[in-house]
């Protein structure tokens, strides 16, 4: 019994030593310091600088649909505004107003192979005989919400000549037989000056492509993210996910972006 007692004491002592040592040797790790945001990044909610230009402004006239703004002054800022204002022409599909939209698109663009791409979805849906249920708010199939994305990047710009602008837009897409769902994606424009900014090319630049060398990457996309709410609304974790593997450099917020 004597031996036994000593064994237990030794065991207790060892456990005590170890416990004390472990407690002493593992001080709580100090919380990592947050990097001071630089002056340029301080302004926006998601860390992007905010510019002074607004979506839905910048021109002096409207196109034949009565709402698309035209008549820009040729500066690079006006190119960014033009890109935002032209985005719905590319993204929206409403079968009841499609014909007018297509007409407007031709007004604000220069003829080229991009027109076929830009009008493919609309033509397809507008000419389809019977579509499955799923359209929302009347005849809407795709409806952009540029302010929900609210970011742009001027990749290259030569005033009153040519500009390549990427616009990050939100939107709502109809789903076959289901409720519509939100999405975010980047539309890349090439605008050419011809008394006004005109679309001369556009693309939804996919992973691994670079718009013929004119952009660094296709910009943020929401592909692979599911949204509970059909209304596009950015959160900072979403922004982080969308920008995964993409450069944040050069992206600027419109002054009236939805935040």
């Amino acid at each position: 019994m004597r031996k036994h007692w000593k064994l237990l004491t030794a065991l207790g002592a060892v456990i005590l030593i170890i416990a004390v040592a472990v407690v002493l040797l593992n001080p709580p790790v100090p919380a990592p310091k947050k990097d001071d945001p630089s002056a340029l990044q301080a302004s926006g909610k998601f860390g992007f600088p905010v510019s002074g230009i607004k979506i839905g402004e910048g021109g002096t006239k409207t196109a034949s649909d009565g709402k698309t703004i035209t008549g820009y002054n040729g500066t690079c800022d006006s190119a960014a505004q033009a890109a935002a204002n032209y985005t719905p022409l590319i993204e929206d599909v409403n079968t009841s107003t499609w014909a007018q939209q297509k007409k407007t698109l031709v007004e604000v663009g220069k003829q080229g192979p991009w027109v076929e791409r830009a009008t493919f979805n609309g033509d397809l849906l507008a000419n389809a005989k019977d579509l499955p249920p799923g359209a929302f708010d009347g005849q809407w199939y795709y409806r952009s919400d540029v302010a929900a994305g609210g970011l742009y990047r001027v990749t290259s710009c030569d005033e009153k000549k040519k500009a390549v602008v990427q616009v990050f837009t939100g939107g709502v897409a109809a789903v076959v037989n289901k409720a519509p769902s939100a999405f975010f994606q980047t539309v890349t424009f090439e605008l050419t000056w011809s008394d006004d900014w005109k679309i001369s090319d556009f693309a939804i630049v996919q992973a691994g492509q670079d718009f013929g060398g004119r952009v660094k990457d296709g910009g943020p996309m929401s592909v692979g993210t599911s949204f509970d709410d059909p209304t596009p609304m950015l959160q900072s974790d979403l922004v982080d996910a969308f920008f995964q593997g993409k450069s944040r450099e050069g992206w600027v917020e419109y002054a009236n972006a939805k935040r």
Binding site: E116, F120, F183, I204, Q206, M221, S222, V223, T225
Partner: peptide, 18 residues
């Protein structure tokens, strides 16, 4: 063929979930 054309025009990535 329209499906292939749709795919190539680029908006195939608009909404897709893994």
């Amino acid at each position: 063929s329209p499906a292939t054309a749709w795919c190539v025009q680029g908006s195939a990535v608009k909404k897709f979930l893994p």
